[in-house]
Design a protein around this nucleic acid. Structure first.
Lengths: 344, 344
DNA sequence: GTGAAAGCGCTAACAC
DNA sequence: GTGTTAGCGCTTTCAC
């Protein structure tokens, strides 16, 4: 038995196909009783609109594309970050009868931009969500926008009234974490910076500096070591920091992977956490709760951010110029076991 | 400027649209010179076929659906498992001009089956890949197959000639891991079983028993404790095991999450790994290399398995009855730092 | 080997 | 409020 089409429903309900279409798309201008009749017919026939037909006729699909940096390009990539993004976007899609297309891509390759535009032109998604660090690369964003597809950037690093974006308060929350560390009596609080390609992460050092200032501590560039967001780089940075005669009593890393790297370095050096060293991270990916001691970190609301981004796309906010700009979803501190009072 | 359509290409190349279609779909019966002319026109116009139109006309999309257990339903879900699956499937999609639709779903909910069928009927995917434990639930598999959509099961637990599936040699490789542990001098090797919903994981205990036998060790059900695949359950199981007067010197957990739980329990009890206790896991998700000491485990080739599954779907193997059955992608041991010689 | 014509199942524009 | 009529850009069928 072939599937019911919009014609079958129309015939059964005794209306035209246009009316069925209106009911299916929740459009106004349908009398309540008519709507009910149609809904009854839909239920009876088990009618499900064919997305391909919808897409072709409306010249846009009900797909949302999620574009992010391909984890396969890295050594020990934490997948929690991506999963959180996916979950948020999926949540929004579920309530809006859409589907999510995932598209990891390696920005180091020449062909990224071309691949992105083909993907978009072929599937005609209703919109694209770009995750950092891709979201702060003009080349990428331009490629997407050149297709005319609405695009929301996640944490593009700096605000920009011309684009839609969703971010968190990286700087403020990092100041807060730093003040928290200081409040535990730490005087030498080190910071490990992240991937320079990832702009939003750059705002985190700034927050660290703010926090030091707020706490009456002096900033010293000796206490800032650079990493690249990878666990290994955190470990290397921590080795440097902990190898000194006067070593820091707390290390704040710009992301969780690097913070776990710090924990590993401490473990190798026989330094106890949190008794001899406090460690804090940023993101609150699952890994933060899988390691022991559990990592104190900043919960970046990636799922909420992605959900918001998807909702904006699905509700067509991009057409409305007044809404352009950055929406901020605030982060929060998650104090767990890896931080404690400063040693004497 | 509106996008080029198949008509534009046909006109420029001086052929009919059918010929363009043949070229685009790599169909036979096109003269080489004609093909070249068409390809030149395609390049010149930057023509990209509209997927929606293709899908509508051919009554099937070029989408592959990946269905897996929703991690959001769990406490500390390791996302590495899912990411590996996604990566493999994406790899196959990339080379076949298809896209991947991800669909986490919670099998504990009544509506799963209905949601799955709507997803499928609406998007008409070329095929569905079901991951465990969903892949061993008749209710789920039946729902998918009732739509007539080809389906490949990943690790369905037991073979079945009527379905397409991809699995790994769980049992054999677990025997190997057990023999390896025994070869290090361990006499009391414990095993933590996994989620009973997840059938393939059940084969792992069997392998453990085989391995004991091969090594001349006696099986004792005292040394087998049950878990549910979660980190917390591994920790709880380890606490039981390690609280005994005569405790095991090695613990083999049916997945990495539980193995990390064991490591955490040992950490809390002040038991050194691998000096006092060897720990082994299964899966080789990133977490295995993020913890310290790095976890000895079985590398389950999930990415290759998913890639194979997607390829089977994309190449239409499902139509060919002779290929039905289970394809096996072998796993391999990854010896790292968490296992060592048995203590005296 | 190639082409003409007839849909695929919807939405859009406009008439009523 | 509701219906009519054209397409959307392809694949399919079948003729040549």
């Amino acid at each position: 038995m072939p599937r019911a089409t919009i014609f079958d429903v129309a015939k059964l309900a005794g209306v035209s196909i246009k009316t069925v279409s209106r009911v299916m798309n929740r459009e106004p201008n349908v009398r309540a009783t008519t709507r009910e009749r149609v809904e009854k017919a839909v239920a009876e026939l088990g009618y499900l609109p064919d997305q391909s037909a919808r897409n072709l006729a409306s010249r846009r699909s009900h797909l949302i594309g999620l574009v992010y940096d391909d984890p396969a390009a890295y050594e020990l990539p934490s997948s929690g970050y991506i999963i959180n993004l996916q979950q948020g976007a999926l949540e929004a899609c579920r309530s809006k009868r859409s589907e999510l297309l995932i598209h990891p891509c390696n920005f180091r390759k020449k062909e990224v931009a071309a691949q992105l535009t083909s993907l978009i032109e072929e599937t005609r998604p209703a919109g694209i969500i770009v995750a950092p660090p891709l979201s702060n690369m003009p080349k990428i964003v331009r490629a997407i926008e050149s297709t005319g597809t609405p695009c929301v950037q996640i944490s593009p690093g700096k605000q920009n009234g011309k684009h839609l974006s969703v971010a968190t308060n990286d700087r403020e929350i990092c100041a807060e974490m730093t003040r928290y560390l200081a409040s535990l009596g730490h005087k030498r609080i080190a910071f490990i910076t992240g991937d320079p390609d990832h702009k939003a992460v750059g705002n985190r050092v700034l927050g660290y500096q703010d926090g030091l200032k707020d706490s009456g501590l002096k900033f010293s560039d000796k206490l800032v070591v650079s990493g690249d967001n990878s666990l290994g780089s955190g470990e290397a940075a921590a080795k440097k920091l902990l190898g000194r005669k006067l070593r820091p009593t707390a290390i704040f890393a710009a992301n969780d992977d690097m913070a776990v790297g710090v924990m590993r370095a401490a473990d190798r050096l026989g330094i106890k956490i949190p008794e001899q060293l406090s460690v804090a991270g940023f993101d609150d990916i699952v890994l933060a709760r899988q390691v022991f001691p559990a990592l104190t970190t900043v919960k970046q609301p990636l799922d909420d951010m992605a959900e918001l981004a998807a909702t904006m796309l699905l509700e067509g906010e991009s057409e409305d110029d007044s809404t352009k700009g950055t929406k901020v979803v605030p982060a929060e501190l998650k104090v767990r076991e890896s931080t404690g009072p400063a040693p004497d």
